[in-house]
Every structure is written in structure tokens, then in C-alpha cells.
Design a protein around this nucleic acid. Structure first.
Lengths: 138, 138
DNA sequence: CTCCGTGCAAATCGTTTGCACACAG
DNA sequence: CTGTGTGCAAACGATTTGCACGGAG
């Protein structure tokens, strides 16, 4: 969890209680929460916060490189960015998980890109069946 | 472009002019069209088709493994499935491109998965700046 | 003949926006 | 002080749904 205040400064932005709370909730979350899930989590601590502010804050965090937005079928999910990593998505229960800590940008060196394309980042998602769902017979 | 009728049969579904037209338009599209783009493309041939039908058909194609849905920031984009491949997304103009033809499922063998996770498919997206946008100085 | 698929319009869902006030710097 | 961030409610865009009719099998 990097220094939020410093990052915001670098963007010419201000530190607020709402931003601190959303960032803390995102870092504390076990999985990959949606904006709405974060909204409810933060509400316990800051009862007056609005969903719009959560969305604004998440955009700010993504801009500042502190989080990643993962669009999916319904609501987008967010991931606090610590290192570049891929995700697993269970086709049965929909749960997102992290791929083990290994820099996935390494695969870039193994993959030929279109001529002239300047790569900046890689996202990877492995779809399958998670251990829990496989255990229940799928 | 596989046999649509056969695939639909396998799903216990019926062949219709609308499904044929949407599938043809998807295969003919140069890039990765949205549902709405396909709607307008198909309208030239089937003036009465509705957007809802395009969405229904795309779901059917995805179910049958003939297409892939690529959710993004605005509308989702669709890709006719010929072989497993990754995508490039230009951060400037937003264009989606295909990674050169190479089976990306190969990377699965190089990446440790969470214990018990049974992988079925991999999606990969490389974000960066495409040749066109880089040429204009970005 | 039987249903599945269609077209239409309205409903829904996630997200964004406009505005007036609050507070960080 | 000065403007950026906030909360609220309304607006918005993408997708889904309910319903009655039409056509595939």
C-alpha cells in the first residue's frame, strides 16, 4: 500500500477522508471488489459517503496507478496494484483470483507484437473452474 | 467460419436468417465490432432486425463457442473465434487488434496456477500505443 | 402443430454528470 | 481565500426483459 497522499500530490489532487477510506477498503478487501461493494464497506466508517464519490475515487486511483479496473460482465471490479499480475476467473461462481506473484510482463518478450506497436502493460485472465467449485463436481 | 447450423443444432437451437446474418457480419468485420456496429451492418441486408436480436444472437454464438465477448470500458466488443489469440488495445484511439497467430494457451504451461484451479481458456490483452498513433507523436 | 426466436418498447443496471455547498491547501 | 472534492438526484448508455406474433422443425 503506497503513500496515497504523495501520489495524489503528484497528480495535483487533494487528500480527503473519502479517498483514504476507499483506498484503505480496497487494500483491505480480500478479493476484487466492485464499486458498490466498496461503497458499503466504506459506509461503516464514513456513513455519509456517496456512490458517485467511490466511482470518482476509483478513477483517481486508476489514473494514479494505485489500482486497476477489471471490466467484466456486470459491474467492473477493482484491484489494488502492487505488482503486475494476471487473474483467474471461475466460470462457475465468477470469483476473481490473482495469479501467483510473477511479473507477467515477462511474457511480452516471448510474444511477437504487431509492427510499430509500443506495449505499455499486459493483462491476462485465465478462465476455468476454481478448486471450490471443482470439489462440488463441475 | 465453422458451420453455424450444426453448432446451433448441437445446442438444440434453430437456424434463422437473423443468426446467419449476424454471424456472417461478425466474420466479415475487419476489426472487433460492438453489438451496435453489427446491428447497423446487418440492417443493410435485413432491414427489420432489432438490436435485441443482435444481442441474443451474440450470446448464442458465445455459448456455442463461435465468438468471444471482450468487455471494455464502454460497449463490449465481439471477436469471431478461429483460434485462441490475444488482443492489443491502443490507449490513444482505443482500437482493438489481434496478436499475431500463435496459440496463447501455450503460456499456461509457463505460469503456475493456484492449486486446484482447472484452466479452460486464457485471454490476454496488451495495452500500448498503436503504430498509427505513435506516428502522430504520443 | 409446437415452440423457439423475433421485434418492439419499457425496464434495469452500472456509471456519469450538473449543481450548490464544504473543506483542503 | 480559491478552487477541488463531495453528496444528491437526475441523466445516460449498454444490455435485458415481457409480451404477442411469426416461422422453423
Amino acid at each position: 500500500m503506497s503513500d496515497l497522499r504523495t501520489t495524489l500530490r503528484g497528480q495535483g489532487r487533494r487528500m480527503t477522508a473519502q479517498r483514504a477510506a476507499v483506498y484503505a477498503a480496497l487494500c483491505a478487501a480480500s478479493g476484487h471488489p466492485t464499486a458498490e461493494e466498496l461503497f458499503f464497506a466504506v459506509r461503516g466508517h464514513l456513513p455519509g459517503i456517496s456512490l458517485a464519490t467511490v466511482y470518482n475515487t476509483l478513477d483517481t486511483l486508476v489514473d494514479g496507478g494505485l489500482a486497476v479496473k477489471i471490466p467484466g460482465d456486470g459491474a467492473a471490479r477493482y484491484d489494488p496494484l502492487c505488482f503486475p499480475h494476471g487473474h483467474t476467473r471461475c466460470a462457475v461462481c465468477g470469483t476473481l483470483g490473482n495469479l501467483p506473484e510473477r511479473d507477467i510482463t515477462a511474457v511480452l518478450s516471448e510474444i511477437p507484437l504487431p509492427t510499430g506497436f509500443q506495449a505499455r502493460a499486459v493483462t491476462m485472465e485465465v478462465e476455468g473452474v476454481c478448486a471450490d467449485c471443482a470439489g462440488r463436481g463441475h
